[in-house]
């Protein structure tokens, strides 16, 4: 375990009525680290993301975030989603949630919202500060589009993009919020091999620029090549954690995925 983690989750529990979707989950992410969260369908991975980003309020447990820039820690439980984004956690969605009636560029510009501040008066009077901020927003958004390879389609509607491009746009939009921790929910779902390969390059590039990444993914090849560490979940519990090499041979993981009866320890 890293001693200078930027995200520390301890004992996170989420109950929906009588169903325990997350059961005393512990997890940590270090700076510039790529951590994968895997597990069979219904294991609670997306629920975990929703707890992290404030969409759900966890029933119990603690989520702490430590900013690598300032070194200041803060508790995320009970914060509204927008506050959490402002603190430096951004996410993408499993079922793509782009603003489909807005242009590609505007989608990314929305991501800049929490890093800008002009309001009614600034907008009406179009003060120098607002104009500067607006131009900065456009420029930074263009830069991000170049990074995710969509600058050619900047002024097209988001809904007209191909599936893979929409996933990349979601990543771009999340990057625009200047996160130090990026949560990717099945970024490779529905992509062809070429698109997946591009995605791997993109994710590595994002990591090299200083973002830590926590991703949910079913594509094992991608997970094994990308991740520094892997957490495995089943039925809301963490059943294993370790490097890709360790996970590959972990019996509990194999049981969870293949249903082999290995031992009585995981009731």
């Amino acid at each position: 375990m890293m001693n200078k983690s930027i995200l520390v989750v301890s004992g996170l529990t989420m109950d929906f009525g009588g169903i325990r979707a997350l059961d005393r989950l512990d997890l940590d992410v270090g700076p510039k680290e790529i951590v994968a969260l895997i597990g069979p369908n219904g294991a609670g991975k997306t629920t975990f993301f929703n707890c992290l980003t404030g969409i759900y309020l966890p029933s119990d447990g603690d989520i702490r975030l430590v900013s690598p820039q300032t070194g200041r820690g803060s508790r995320l439980n009970g914060l509204k989603p927008n506050k959490i984004t402002k603190k430096g956690v951004a996410r993408t969605f499993q079922n793509i949630r782009l603003f489909s009636q807005m242009t590609v560029l505007e989608n990314v510009m929305i991501g800049r919202h929490c890093r800008t501040s002009s309001l009614i008066m600034g907008a009406i009077l179009r003060t120098r500060k607002t104009r500067k901020e607006e131009q900065e927003t456009i420029d930074k958004s263009y830069d991000i589009l170049e990074k995710v390879g969509l600058s050619e389609q900047a002024n097209e509607f988001a809904s007209s993009l191909s599936y893979g491009a929409q996933r990349r746009l979601e990543i771009g939009r999340a990057l625009a919020t200047e996160p130090f921790l990026l949560l990717l929910d099945e970024p490779a779902a529905g992509m062809n091999p070429q698109e997946t390969a591009d995605l791997v390059t993109l994710i590595l590039q994002i990591r090299d620029e200083g973002h830590a990444i926590l991703l949910i993914e079913h594509d094992m090849k991608l997970v094994m090549t990308l991740s520094d560490r892997i957490f495995v979940m089943d039925y809301g519990k963490k059943i294993a954690q370790g490097t890709p090499a360790e996970i590959r041979v972990n019996r509990a993981v194999i049981k969870a995925y293949l249903g082999e009866d290995v031992g009585p320890d995981n009731a």
Binding site: P81, N82, F93, F99, T177
Partner: peptide, 17 residues
């Protein structure tokens, strides 16, 4: 822009801060 985005998808909006 924020209004437009809000019209389209509230959850994504919140996730964008």
């Amino acid at each position: 822009r924020a209004w437009l985005a809000l019209r389209e998808d509230e959850i994504a909006c919140q996730a964008m801060g």
